[in-house]
């Protein structure tokens, strides 16, 4: 009956999460707006679906994914895996020995971002608003690629022990430069994507990876170096979405040019 216990506790904490939102919404509804809510029943059912869905989702993650993912992160960062036969010392271990860690960071960063519910929500909205010009799947793949790259670089930072602010500041500089070149309509969405990547699915596994690395490498402080991976997962998606938009603009322009050239070629021949 452990699963039932888990469902109950998760449901309670999800409801506690939603309670302030419900209080604020209804407080303003009754005190300030004072208008009847149309489709109240449908909205209430929707809320129940969201609560039940999120509870099941979290319980499932805790049953299936998190224990495996965290165990994997520990094993991949353990010295016995990095350098078998090193006899438990870090002598002669170089950053390239951690190759599987970088690959795992990228793969799990990508996969968990694709499954992130809040990103799905923003992507659905963006596809609807843009009238299909932005595809929900394209946006999610771009964001996930950014997270994959970011978390992978973030693990390299922990392995190499280089300071976090350098990376994040360099990331910001690239984002600022891209912002000046990107089309106006994609910028707000790109910045939003940086904030939604890191919630229910990505954070626990990525945090376990950071803590695992910071604990096993001598000279790293798990409390200080274990943090910061989330920051990587927030900056790089912005770059990826801006880059994705620039690339699709460029390809569209090239296609138009080709069509034009083909037409000109036909008329002159």
């Amino acid at each position: 009956m452990m699963v039932l216990d888990l469902i109950t506790t998760t449901a309670v904490s999800t409801i506690r999460d939603v309670l302030p939102i419900v209080v604020i919404l209804f407080g303003f509804q009754f005190l300030v707006i004072r208008k009847k809510i149309p489709n109240l029943k449908k909205i209430a059912i929707g809320f129940v679906y969201v609560l039940a869905g999120l509870t099941l989702f979290l319980v499932g993650l805790q049953e299936a994914l998190f224990p495996l993912g965290e165990a994997m992160a520990r094993q991949l960062t353990a010295l016995e895996f990095i350098k078998p036969g090193a006899g438990g010392t870090h002598m002669g271990v170089v950053w390239t020995d951690y190759a599987w860690v970088y690959v795992f960071a990228a793969a799990i960063g990508f996969a968990t971002t694709i499954a992130e519910p809040s990103l799905i929500a923003v992507a659905i909205k963006a596809e609807g608003i843009s009238g299909g010009a932005i595809r929900a799947s394209g946006l999610r793949i771009a964001v996930a690629t950014g997270v994959a790259f970011g978390v992978s670089v973030g693990t390299y930072r922990i392995v190499s022990g280089t300071p976090l602010p350098y990376y994040i500041m360099a990331g910001y500089v690239v984002v600022i430069l891209q912002t000046f070149r990107a089309s106006k309509s994609i910028i707000p969405l790109a910045f939003d994507s940086g904030g939604v990547t890191t919630s229910t699915v990505t954070v626990p596994v990525v945090t376990a990876l950071g803590l695992g690395l910071a604990t096993t490498i001598p000279g790293r402080n798990p409390l200080i170096d274990g943090f910061g991976l989330i920051a990587f997962a927030s900056v790089f998606p912005i770059m990826a979405v801006l880059g994705y938009a620039q690339m699709s603009d460029w390809m569209l322009a090239r296609k138009k040019r080709h069509l034009k050239e083909a037409k000109v070629g036909n008329s002159t021949s």
């Binding site: 699963v3 449908k42 909205i43 209430a44 059912i45 929707g46 809320f47 129940v48 679906y49 969201v50 609560l51 039940a52 869905g53 999120l54 509870t55 099941l56 989702f57 979290l58 319980v59 499932g60 993650l61 805790q62 049953e63 299936a64 994914l65 499954a115 519910p117 799905i120 929500a121 659905i124």
Partner: peptide
Amino acid sequence: LTGLVFVVLGLALFIRGLEMGL
């Protein structure tokens, strides 16, 4: 496997609730 069934059902319900409620 049980966990995965929960994850898939939960996500499906969440997205449905999103469009109906939130």
